[in-house]
C-alpha cells in the first residue's frame, strides 16, 4: 500500500513543482489552474492510501516472502454474466444522442437507463453472490 500511495503523492508533488515554476515564469493563471487541479488529483488519493497504509499491516501482495497458505477468505465477488451493463450502455447512448437529434431519443434512452438501474440493483442482492 505504501508504494501505491507514494505513486499518487509523487504525481501531486510533481505538479506542485511544475506549477510553481510555470506560474512564476509565465504569470499565466489559466493554465496554472490545470496544474493545480492535477496536483490535487494526485495528492488526494495519495494521502488517502497513505492514511490507510499506516493503519494496516502489509497486505499479502505487499510482502515478498508470503506463502499462499497464509491467505484466507474470498478474493472478491465477481459476477459471471449480466445483461444490465448492455442495457445501461444503450440507454446512455440514446440519451447522449438527444444532444444531436432532440429530446425524443432521451425519452427512450432514459427508459433503458432506469430499467438498468433497477435491474442492476436487484441482481446485486447478496443471494446472487454465489461466487466468492
Amino acid at each position: 500500500m505504501k508504494l501505491e500511495s507514494r505513486i499518487y503523492v509523487g504525481v501531486g508533488v510533481f505538479f506542485v513543482l511544475v506549477v510553481v515554476i510555470y506560474f512564476l515564469w509565465s504569470g499565466d493563471s489559466g493554465n496554472s489552474i490545470f496544474l493545480v487541479a492535477s496536483a490535487l488529483l494526485g495528492i488526494m488519493p495519495g494521502l488517502y492510501l497513505g492514511w490507510w497504509s499506516r493503519r494496516m499491516s502489509p497486505r499479502p501482495e505487499d510482502r515478498e516472502d508470503v506463502s499462499l497458505e497464509e491467505i484466507e477468505g474470498a478474493v472478491g465477488y465477481f459476477p459471471s454474466y449480466t445483461i444490465w451493463p448492455f442495457v445501461l450502455g444503450i440507454g446512455v447512448f440514446l440519451t447522449a444522442l438527444a444532444f444531436v437529434f432532440g429530446a425524443w431519443t432521451a425519452v427512450i434512452g432514459m427508459g433503458f437507463v432506469i430499467s438498468a438501474a433497477i435491474g442492476g440493483t436487484l441482481s446485486s442482492k447478496p443471494k446472487a453472490m454465489a461466487h466468492r
Binding site: 478474493v75 459476477p79 449480466t82 448492455f86 445501461l88 450502455g89 446512455v92 447512448f93 442492476g120
Partner: peptide
C-alpha cells in the same frame, strides 16, 4: 487476479466504447 475489480463497469465501458 480472477477478473477486473469492477466487472460490470468494465462491460459498461465496452458498450459506451462501441456505441
Amino acid at each position: 487476479a480472477p477478473d477486473m475489480a469492477f466487472p460490470r463497469l468494465n462491460a459498461l465501458s465496452y458498450w459506451l466504447f462501441l456505441t
